[in-house]
Amino acid sequence: MKRFFMLAFLVGLIVSGFAFKVIMVTDIGGLGDGSFMDGTWAGIVKAAEEYGLEYEVIQSKEQSDYIPNLSKAAEEADVVFAVGFLMSDAFFKVAQQYPATYFVGIDFSFPEEKNLPNVMTFTFKEQEGSFLTGYLAAGMTRTGKVAILGGIPIPPVQRYVIGFEAGVKAYNQIHKTNIKVKSVYANTFTDPKKGKEFGQALISEGYDIIQQACGGTALGLLEAIKEENQKRANIDNLPEFIDDLYKNGGVFMLGGDIEQEWQAPGHILASAIKRVDVASYLGVVKAYTGEWEPGNVELGIKEKGEGISRMPFTKGLVSNKLLAEIVYIQNLVGIGKIKIPSTEEELKAFWLKGIEIPF
Results as ranks from 00 to 15, higher is better:
92 F>P: 03
102 Y>D: 03
115 N>M: 15
146 V>W: 03
107 D>N: 02
117 P>K: 08
99 P>D: 06
135 Y>D: 09
104 V>L: 02
118 N>P: 11
147 A>T: 06
120 M>G: 09
137 A>D: 06
116 L>I: 08
120 M>D: 10
146 V>N: 00
108 F>S: 04
110 F>V: 10
125 K>R: 15
137 A>H: 05
90 A>W: 00
124 F>W: 01
97 Q>E: 15
142 R>K: 13
126 E>H: 09
121 T>W: 10
144 G>N: 09
101 T>H: 02
112 E>M: 13
86 L>W: 02
115 N>L: 15
84 G>Q: 01
131 F>V: 02
121 T>Y: 10
144 G>T: 11
137 A>I: 07
84 G>Y: 04
137 A>K: 01
146 V>G: 01
115 N>W: 15
86 L>K: 08
84 G>W: 00
104 V>S: 00
132 L>C: 11
120 M>T: 13
87 M>A: 06
136 L>A: 05
138 A>S: 08
113 E>N: 15
88 S>G: 14
84 G>N: 03
123 T>E: 13
93 K>Q: 14
95 A>C: 07
126 E>G: 09
129 G>D: 05
135 Y>M: 10
99 P>C: 08
142 R>V: 05
86 L>F: 13
95 A>L: 01
117 P>C: 11
112 E>K: 15
143 T>M: 07
111 P>C: 08
117 P>A: 12
100 A>W: 14
143 T>L: 08
110 F>A: 10
141 T>A: 12
89 D>Y: 14
117 P>N: 12
97 Q>V: 13
85 F>V: 09
129 G>T: 06
135 Y>H: 12
126 E>N: 11
104 V>N: 04
133 T>V: 15
111 P>V: 03
124 F>L: 09
117 P>E: 10
106 I>H: 02
109 S>A: 15
135 Y>N: 11
101 T>P: 03
118 N>Y: 07
103 F>W: 00
134 G>P: 04
98 Y>C: 09
90 A>Q: 03
88 S>L: 11
141 T>K: 01
87 M>W: 06
137 A>L: 06
131 F>Y: 11
129 G>M: 05
121 T>M: 06
113 E>P: 14
102 Y>H: 11
130 S>V: 14
91 F>R: 01
106 I>N: 02
146 V>Y: 00
113 E>A: 13
133 T>P: 09
125 K>H: 14
105 G>W: 00
147 A>H: 06
133 T>I: 14
127 Q>C: 08
144 G>K: 03
129 G>Q: 05
134 G>Y: 11
94 V>G: 05
101 T>I: 01
119 V>N: 01
107 D>C: 09
138 A>F: 08
83 V>Y: 02
112 E>N: 14
115 N>D: 14
86 L>H: 12
110 F>T: 08
145 K>I: 07
90 A>L: 04
122 F>P: 09
104 V>G: 03
145 K>T: 13
118 N>H: 07
110 F>E: 11
82 A>V: 09
113 E>K: 15
105 G>A: 04
137 A>V: 09
116 L>M: 08
